[in-house]
C-alpha cells in the first residue's frame, strides 16, 4: 500500500519551474531515494511535502489524507518528520531539549499545569524525558544530553537531527542528504543506521542523497529528478545503467566512462 502519493505536483518560483508535473509514490516500509543534480528540485519537493511551500498544481496524499494547504505543524502531526540539508538544530538549546521539542506532537498538557506542577503535567514531562533519554541512547549520543547542540561534532549534529525527527514518532521520515560532509566510514555507519530505523522501528524512509554508494547500497527504489521533472525510476541497477541519468549528471558523451565512477 502506498504511504505517500504525489500526483502531478508542480511548484513554480516566478518564471522558474522547480518541480514539474512530478508523480511519485512511496510504499509503506520502503527505503526510497530521490537523486538528481544540484538544483534539480529535490529539496523543493521535500518542502512541498512538509508544507514549507504551497504548490500550485497536483496533489500529495499521505496515509489517505491530503496534505495540500496544511501548515507544517499539522503535517508533522500527521506523521511526517524531516531533517534538513543544512543542519537546522535549535543551536542554543541542549541536545535533550532539542529532542523534547521534537516530541511536541505527543505532548498535550498546558502551561497552567506546568505553573502549578499538576500531576498530569509532571507525569507527561517525566515520560517525555525518559523517552528522550532512550532516543539519545538509540542514536548513540549517550552522555551528551546536556551539551548545547551547537557544540556537538558534525556527525553528532546529524544524529541529533534524526533523533529529533524520530521523537515525533513519524510514519514517514524524510532525510535530506543525511551523509553530506561525512567521511566514508561515517557514511557507512549512517547507512547502517538508516536501515536500522526501518527494520527496528518500522519507519518508512525517503532520502535525498548525493553519495551514490549510500544511495545504491540502501535504496529499494530510486527516482531521478532533473530540472524538476522525473527522468528515471527503478531499482539501483536499473538506474546505474540508465543513459539518461548519466547524461543528466555528467553531460552528453560522458555516459560510457561514468558508470565506472558511480560504481567506485
Amino acid at each position: 500500500m502506498a504511504l505517500l502519493e504525489a500526483t502531478n505536483v508542480t511548484k513554480q518560483f516566478g518564471g522558474l519551474t522547480a518541480v514539474n508535473d512530478f508523480t511519485f509514490t512511496v510504499e509503506k516500509g520502503a527505503i526510497d531515494s530521490i537523486i538528481g543534480p544540484n538544483g534539480a528540485g529535490k529539496t523543493t519537493f521535500f518542502n512541498c511535502i512538509t508544507g514549507f511551500y504551497q504548490f500550485e498544481e497536483g496533489a500529495i496524499v499521505f496515509d489517505g489524507h491530503s496534505v495540500n494547504g496544511r501548515s507544517t505543524d499539522q503535517i508533522t502531526r500527521m506523521g511526517i518528520s524531516r531533517t534538513y540539508q543544512n543542519i537546522r538544530l535549535f543551536s542554543q538549546m541542549t541536545t535533550i531539549e532539542n529532542i523534547l521539542v521534537g516530541m511536541e506532537p505527543q505532548l498535550h498538557t498546558s502551561w497552567i499545569g506546568a505553573l502549578f506542577r499538576l500531576p498530569p503535567t509532571v507525569k507527561e514531562e517525566t515520560k517525555a524525558l525518559n523517552e528522550a533519554r532512550r532516543l539519545l541512547d538509540f542514536v548513540g549520543l549517550t552522555g551528551k544530553g546536556d551539551d548545547l547542540s551547537r557544540n556537538l561534532s558534525y556527525g553528532d549534529q546529524r544524529r541529533l537531527e534524526i533523533a529529533r525527527a524520530l521523537a515525533a514518532k513519524p510514519k514517514l521520515l524524510l532525510l535530506d542528504e543525511p551523509t553530506a560532509g561525512m567521511n566514508p566510514r561515517e557514511s557507512a555507519e549512517t547507512t547502517e543506521f538508516i536501515r536500522r530505523l526501518r527494520d527496528e522501528l518500522g519507519i518508512t524512509i525517503l532520502l535525498i542523497e548525493h553519495d551514490m554508494r549510500v544511495v545504491m547500497g540502501i535504496s529499494e527504489n530510486i527516482t531521478v529528478l532533473d530540472y524538476g521533472a522525473k527522468i528515471a525510476e527503478g531499482g539501483p541497477s536499473d538506474i546505474q545503467s540508465n543513459p539518461r541519468v548519466i547524461e543528466a549528471y555528467l553531460g552528453r558523451g560522458a555516459a560510457a566512462s561514468a558508470t565506472i565512477e558511480i560504481e567506485s
Binding site: 491530503s66 495540500n68 494547504g69 496544511r70 501548515s71 499539522q74
Partner: peptide
C-alpha cells in the same frame, strides 16, 4: 488557494 479555505 481554494485548499486554504478548508482549514479555517
Amino acid at each position: 488557494m481554494s485548499q486554504r479555505f478548508k482549514n479555517i
